[in-house]
Amino acid sequence: MVSAVFHSPLDASIPLPLPLPLPRAGEGRGEGVTRVEAAPHPSPLPKGAREEKARRSIDLRWFWMRVLPPLAGFGLLVLIWELVALRSTNGFPSPLETWKQALDVFSDPFYSKGPNDQGVGWNVLSSLQRVALGFGLAAAVGIPAGFAIGRFEFLSRMFNPLISLLRPVSPLAWLPIGLLVFKGANPAAIWTIFICSIWPMIINTAVGVQRVPSDYMNVAKVLNLSEWKIITKILFPAVLPYMLTGVRLAVGTAWLVIVAAEMLTGGVGIGFWVWDEWNNLNVKNIIIAIFVIGIVGLLLEFALIKIATAFTFEEVKS
């Protein structure tokens, strides 16, 4: 007699029993059966070792991406400089000779042996003083003018042609006008700094005012705010990043122009120092002055970038 067993569909959900582990060789029944063991997993590194490995990889990446490229660039500059000095027949100084001369120059940068013989420190300070005066006057005039031109369409249409006409003029073209009007080399140099620094501040400030969202101005109209409230509470916070960008560009332009202006006007200043050393055929001091001008300009640019970043909103930075 054949009997059949019918399983209910509910029985399908019952899990099957797991297979028993195989016995080892010579253990219990089935002595010929051997147990297959899985390969052991490598033990993970301790937490301190993993952190040390990650830190080393970050340090190496920082060195390769941040430190090595500038060093390679300066090394290439020194190599080209050395090759030019070796092939020169008119006594062009080598990097080593210039370095020795720089040590001698900066051993006493603030000596004074008369109005035409002063250390490089006094010359740099005199140039920075002229830049500060000319730039300060340009900021006092240019930033309010930029607010007015950007705020009122009539003033924008009135002054835009004049700005477009005068802005491309070389700054040194204004130097004879300053000498004629002010009757002195120092005021003429400050005037040149003023006229070349004012355009970036006017243009950037006006563009910032024009890019303020119209919703802000509509809210000001609804609240019936005064013009002073609109400028101080709405326009100034929104325009500040644009204004600081104009200030940064103006300072860079001013530092470029003052060197050329001092070459023509004379007196005390880094530009006059370069021209005086050329008259003395001291090329090593001219090269030193070039590096000094570049380092001071770099420091000014870096300081203004930090100030602009500190006063810039996150959405503008991104």
Rank of each mutant, 00 (worst) to 15 (best):
L249H: 04
P213Y: 08
Y216E: 03
M201N: 07
L71T: 09
T232W: 04
L128S: 07
S57C: 05
L264A: 12
A254T: 03
S170P: 07
P46E: 12
F152G: 02
L155H: 03
A206T: 04
V141T: 11
I195A: 00
D117N: 12
R50C: 11
R157K: 06
M243D: 01
P44A: 07
E227T: 12
R151N: 01
E97P: 11
L77Q: 07
N279L: 04
R167G: 05
L162W: 09
F152W: 02
V120S: 01
S156W: 06
P40I: 03
W81I: 00
G121L: 15
N279Q: 06
L83M: 03
S112C: 05
K233D: 01
S170G: 14
A38S: 08
A308M: 15
P241S: 13
L175M: 15
I270Y: 11
R248E: 03
R29I: 06
V105I: 02
F194S: 00
F154A: 05
K113M: 03
V124T: 03
G32V: 07
N116D: 09
Q129Y: 12
W278G: 14
A289G: 03
M201V: 09
E315L: 14
G114S: 05
L22F: 03
V222N: 11
S107P: 03
K183I: 07
E97T: 14
V84C: 00
S13A: 04
V251M: 06
K229W: 01
T34K: 02
L103T: 06
F63Q: 11
I203R: 06
C196T: 06
Y216T: 08
D276T: 07
Y216W: 07
L175H: 15
G246Y: 03
W273M: 10
L155T: 08
M65T: 08
N204F: 12
S112I: 12
E301D: 14
V36H: 00
I258M: 07
G266V: 12
S88C: 05
V283I: 14
G114Q: 09
F236L: 02
A289C: 05
W228H: 13
T98F: 03
